[in-house]
Amino acid sequence: MGNFMVEITGVVLAGGKSSRMRENKAFLDVDGQTLLERVVTGLRAVFPEVIIVGDPDAYRGLADRVVADIFPGVGPLAGIHAGLTFASHNLVFVAACDLPFVNGGLASFIAARAEGFDAAVPCVGGRLQPLFAAYRKTCLGPVTRCLEAGRYRVASFLGEVRVRYLTEADFAGWPHLRRVFFNVNTPADVKRLQQKIFAAVPVVGVVGPAKAGKTRLIEGVAAALAAAGYRAAVLKHTDHRLADTPGKDTDRFIRAGAVKTALAGPGGLFYFQTAGEPELGAVLALLEDGVDIILVEGYKEAPLPQIKVTENGEKTASDERTVAVVSADPRVYEGVQVFSPDDAEGVASFIIEHFLRKEESRY
């Protein structure tokens, strides 16, 4: 068996409808491999059996076995049920097919933590991750009862079994932990993946012309989010070159030939580089820890969901990235949520409903 963990079955869930993607996301290409292939390969590296739960005709030959849902059309809980039913081993490790950064070593680490429990489920950044988790066949009865009762949320059965919840403290030393839970649901997610712009928390852009009121809006939104108990990070982009203070140690290092410098200490981090600018994805990775959402002012060409702020109520062009508009004249927009410039609390409520509560209720 080599480095395999014996008596564990890897289960890949590929039964979703991909309605937001408008095509089967399991077959989306990522660096020369489909999403499904990436997940299967990651699990095959550590588990002796890997099965796919999905359409047997579409996925035939891509794993040791392909099985269909016994409770079709009701979501990933049915996939877990089928995986537990058909797995050869008592312990299964479940992974959704839309996770491009599946790490087999991390999967086996989580599975090992199920010793003495019915399930081992990560809870990272305050978010449950039941679609990258380990379950024993002792969960099958509770899962079946939930499905028969029409309780289709993935977490519905967890209160009936012994669960070991794994937090950041349990994963100390694992690099890029949150990246493993980045999932692909929309064409915009694919573009972000291709451009390496991804984060483990929702990212929402606020764009518009200069002096349109973007900063004032973000101030109000950040305050409203904080009042509602959410932790926001804010990233502002500028086209003006950032320069260090002449004579400071970090400036002297650059003048001496260093290409990058950083000053870290209580309260934060200052970073400078001699050429270009930091990649958006790298900055998001720096900000994502310890927050619930990242608001981005600027980066108007980035493939992010955008709230567009207009100037003097003038109509602005919208595209598939536009999720809401802030305008003094809501009559000129159809098919998109419009807020007045002084309704920061309304914008915050919209963000909570569409990006934060949606994440919280996903499972």
Score class of each variant (00 low, 15 high):
H89V: 07
T138A: 13
Y135C: 06
G267E: 01
A222P: 03
M5Q: 08
R321N: 15
N24V: 12
D342I: 11
M21D: 00
V206M: 04
K315F: 09
P122M: 00
L131W: 10
T34P: 08
I254G: 00
Y135I: 09
V326F: 06
D118F: 09
I294K: 04
G54L: 11
G79T: 06
R216I: 13
F198T: 10
F181V: 06
R179W: 04
A114N: 11
I80F: 04
K137T: 03
V121W: 02
G265V: 09
T250A: 14
W174I: 12
D249M: 04
D69P: 09
A112C: 05
I218P: 03
S318Q: 11
H89F: 14
G281P: 01
R178M: 10
L62I: 13
P341N: 04
K137P: 04
F93S: 07
A78L: 04
R20I: 00
F47E: 05
V221W: 08
E334V: 14
R162L: 02
G10S: 13
A14I: 02
L295H: 03
G173V: 05
A344M: 02
E168V: 01
M1Q: 09
G10N: 12
G125D: 00
I52S: 04
L287C: 09
K308R: 15
L263P: 00
A155C: 09
N3A: 10
V259P: 00
T274Y: 04
K248L: 08
L106F: 02
V124Q: 01
G75M: 14
V6G: 05
E320F: 11
G276E: 01
N183I: 04
V143N: 08
A285W: 03
V338I: 08
V326Q: 03
R151F: 03
P187G: 11
L217T: 02
A111R: 07
A227E: 15
V259Q: 10
V207W: 03
A95D: 05
A82I: 06
A26Q: 09
P305H: 02
R179G: 02
G15T: 01
L356C: 01
T316I: 13
E314G: 13
T144I: 13
P48C: 06
A344L: 03
A275T: 15
I51F: 11
